[in-house]
Every structure is written in C-alpha cells, then in structure tokens.
Amino acid sequence: MEIGFTLNGRHVEVSCKPSTLLSDLIREQLSLTGTHVGCDTSQCGACVVHLNGDSVKSCTVLAVAADDGEVRTVEGLCAVDGTLHPMQQAFHENHGLQCGFCTPGMLMSAIDLVKHIPDPTEAEIREWLEGNICRCTGYQNIVKSIIAGAAAMRTAS
C-alpha cells in the first residue's frame, strides 16, 4: 500500500504492507531508530510516538493509520540546530535517564501528559506513566524531570 504522512514536519511517501506496524515502518523503512521496541505486548512504552498530536504505542498501531496524518518521533523534538525541547532538557538536568532505552517513549508520553494536564501532580505523573516501563531509574528522577519539564513548557508557551 502507498501511504503518505508528515513525519517530524516533512512529508514522506512510503509503500508498506497492510500488516506493517508503525514502529517497524519508522525504524526499518524510514531509519528513525530513536523509537524503540522493548516488548511485544504493548506494555513497555519505549515505542511511544505522537500520531496526530496524541501519544500512541507505535508497536500497536498499523502504519496505514498514519496515512494523511502527522507523526512526531523523539527525533522531531529538538530544534534543527539541536536545541533541546524543554522536556528533553529537563530529563538531562534531572538525571531522568540511565541506559536511554525507555527515554524516547518517556519523553513522548510526558509531553502528551503536559498537553492534557499542564501542571501535573506527582501522583498524576506516576499514574500517567503506568504504560511506560523503566528498568534503570526507579522512576524517581523521571518524575522529577517531568515536573521540571512541565514547568518549563508552561513558561515557554
């Protein structure tokens, strides 16, 4: 099937099978490997991207669902000159990552959280992250990062 969509601000046209997963399309065909796959049961959340502005687990979305839509991956967060998105900066400042594997999904989930709840409480953050597993940090600095990132996003907007 031929599909076309906006990927991190640029238009792409690709051909894929009806069964191709969005995560595979992004990683294998479009070579944006920042989106990670950590499980096969939609539990870990390392593959979270934004589809038409909402966070989705790209391992559980068919690529064709992106047709005519807009996809944003972790690679699309920072500016062209490399300047970090406030949430990326907050993860860096607060040691919100260790091995980096869950980080793309955490960032994409966190940004979507702030879209829904601009000033989230710790409990709201922890509940929102139910679908994102981190095996390294114990979540403490991720929560701290998201509180800081949300504040920075509020200031920026």
Binding site: T33, G34, V37, V74, E75, H92, L97, G100, F101
Partner: peptide, 14 residues
C-alpha cells in the same frame, strides 16, 4: 544524555 534524549543512541537493533 546528549544522544539519548535526542533518540540518537546506537543500539544493536538500530
């Protein structure tokens, strides 16, 4: 962090 927060790490599967 510079590469990991940008999704620019290189893991074997990549």
């Amino acid at each position: 962090d510079a590469r990991f927060v940008r999704g620019r790490g290189t893991y074997v599967a990549d």
